[in-house]
Write a protein that binds this DNA or RNA. Sequence first.
RNA 1: GCCGGUGUGGCGGAAUUGGUAGACGCGCGCGAUUCAAAAUCGCGUUUCUUCGGAAGUGCGGGUUCGAUUCCCGCCGCCGGUACCA
Length: 852
Amino acid sequence: MAQRRKQFPFDEFEPQWQKHWEDNKTFSVPNPGDEGFDPDKPKYYVLDMFPYPSGSGLHVGHPEGYTATDIITRYKRMKGFNVLHPMGWDAFGLPAEQHAIKTGEHPRINTQNNVDTFRGQLQRLGFAYDWNREVNTTAPDYVRWTQWIFLKLYNSYFNEDTQKAHPISELEEKGFSREDIDDRRLAFVAETPVNWSPDLGTVLANEEVEEWRSKGHTVERRPLRQWMLRITAYAQRLIDELDNLDWPEGIKLLQKNWIGRSDGAEVNFTIGDETVTVFTTRPDTLFGATYMVLAPEHPLVDKITTPSLKDQIEEYKSRCAAKSDLERTELAKEKTGIFTGAYAVNPVNEEKIPVYIADYVMMGYGTGAIMAVPAHDTRDNEFAENFAIEIIQVVEAPEGNEDKCFTGNGTAINSGFLSGLSTEEAKQKICDWLEERDLGKGTVNYKLRDWLFSRQRYWGEPFPVAWKDGNHYAISEDELPLLAPELEDYKPTGNPEPTLSKATDWVELEDGSLRETNTMPQWAGSCWYYLRYCDTGNTDRFISEEAEAYWMGKNGNPGGVDLYVGGTEHAVLHLLYARFWHKVLFDLGYLSTPEPFHKLVNQGLILGEDGQKMSKSRGNVVNPDDVVEQYGADSLRLYEMFMGPLEQVKPWSMKGVEGVFRFLARVWRLVMDNDQEGNWVISEKITEAEPDKKANKALHATIKKVGEDIEGMAFNTAISQMMVCTNELTKLEKVPVSSVITLLQLLNPFAPHLTEELNARLAKAFDSLSSNGLADREWPQFIEEYLHEDEIEIVVQVNGKVRDKINVPSEADKDEVEKLALESEKAQSFIEGSTVRKVIVVPGRLVNIVAN
RNA sequence: GCCGGUGUGGCGGAAUUGGUAGACGCGCGCGAUUCAAAAUCGCGUUUCUUCGGAAGUGCGGGUUCGAUUCCCGCCGCCGGUACCA
């Protein structure tokens, strides 16, 4: 392309406009109380999911969502909103740490380099970010407040009565013991089995395990003392409060399923002197329970096992322990288990049923014990067939159902006092019956687990906590931020001791306390960054009350951020974690809304030209820098929006980039022409004349459609309408300059450099034009009258098939249109020989003549 | 298995939410310009066709004057999830 002559000098004017916006702080927005703040304007908060600044730089997936929000930002500004549109860096993370391990260089340096690369790349795309509000999760003044929020969690508990977080001091006042208080904190310490990776030197969240395993790292389960966050306390609210959010239904469902509420009952069985509680969602099938299964790790297993079977049980248990979760499911085609020799008594009928252990029952869910109803549960059914256990039918399926193992709702049979009741009634009755006798109760269970919040890495926020005499305590708020010390060597310790434990000077405090050496996971910083943007420089508070009230409230929605755009990969975890923190801070009175994000949009993945996921190994990665180099930032932006609907997965096409590039060149040539020396001058076709009817129609139809499409985030169709409009204007002998300016205004949010450049050039040539930049103008309004036509084309159908097209006066009423249609010769020829039964007239559209 | 999404020309995708299927762009073909090419401009481009038309939105049914759109039953692809009791 270097040798090919550029069709318009984007490489000259794009950097100039970027500099102009930066120098003039065009897109900086003041806070309430700041100079230049206009309190009469409504606010609009547009947020992108901030990136992890990886060493490989931006890829074309990033600018997809970023361009969409950028268009909205520029559009909303023109519509008179104060728009907050910030960008920042989710900069803690393992890659920087691994780089540090290899080179001995502090991860901060590598991180900073990557951030600089990313920022430069984004700026070269001309995004309207308020760079004064840049946030970096690793910056000391950010870490300070992340740790501060952690202390809020540490110093709060969940009050079941109010369903809210309350300060822990309430419990102190009530005289709770230290132990009881520690048991109720939202941030607490627990000994739990975790995924430990010896070669990474850290534990991994369950959802991270597969990723690292596939990279060749080993991961094993072992119990470790860990910090946990009590997100389970919020399970119900996290489900309920999704309702009023403007999120894709699929994402809401994903979150609901992840939280996984199930309604059922706990039932107490006895085994000798011991009581075992099982959880079931089908208490109505209690009469059909023919055996019981305990998870192999269940604490009662050793107690109840018959001595003669001890060896076999031990052998089975160790076999299960050796399996990873993955293997446990993969190898589970066949159900395995083993009889303990013990019998449990079914409380409902005093029947003795055998007790097994089997790895299809998990310790982590419910009570780790089930009553097995092989007639109505597929898993129990499979197991019972393998072990030749009795199967008793207790639910009669509705007529017509032939399932071998019926799991739906029906009518209770063979169930004593429940017989004859519907499943719903039976559930209710048995729950009442159990409760009256203290043998069980209705309960709700959630799949959601508490959040494993500690990592053994170096490059994360240290916990603002120290230990003395086996107890933890929070360090004082004015010691924040607590930063990790520099290390000579960032290698993991090789055992579950966190890397920070190597910094003994830092760990050991004068009074004999020891600092906590775990660090927080990467999620911590991303849980609240959207709040910090509102008030980045604040040294007294994580966000001022005024800034919070303005940017995060004020519009009657449950969520503070008006629009949040990012990938589906964060549909569950990030969004759930952020909602959780937000709710805690809301409960404690720091925030005005119960939810962080009101409207959520997920952009679709961009695939390589081959239709495959972009990856280095496939060699199909498109580098945005190359695209900018060849076609300019405006072309990249426009192409990303023109590819198709934002939410959809779609393949990249360089030919497509060329297509929008050609469109931009057409817009350029609509205004500019080459003189004899080959310099760009304003085209002679541009005039100050008033646009004619046809030009006005094309233009105003475009104003209407582009406005509507931006609101609906249908950017691809907005662009195609602007293409149509450009083609119309290009056809004119004389092009009215006012029409061109309006078109440039509409195109400005999409292609800001080109449009500002042309606008500036036109302003110099025509005195009548404003010299203001397009970014600071009002969005054009369309005039309905211009859209109106005297005559419209109507389709004439006979029996649903198009036979003719006729022009009718646009104000013609139904009868007239019907008459004109029936007069159509072509239609006549198809009606000939048959009788007209019915005529349907759709005003402005068509006439359908039904004849036979 | 379950949950969600999706299926329209050679390709990316449009279609006022029941009313002309294929807007816009890519690609391709023809023409203009050019010594020639690139770039640019114009015209054409769903398929078949006896040039009258006929068929056509994954497949099979249905509702309707009329279905890409609504209903029932299948199939393919993509994503998530996995013994959750």
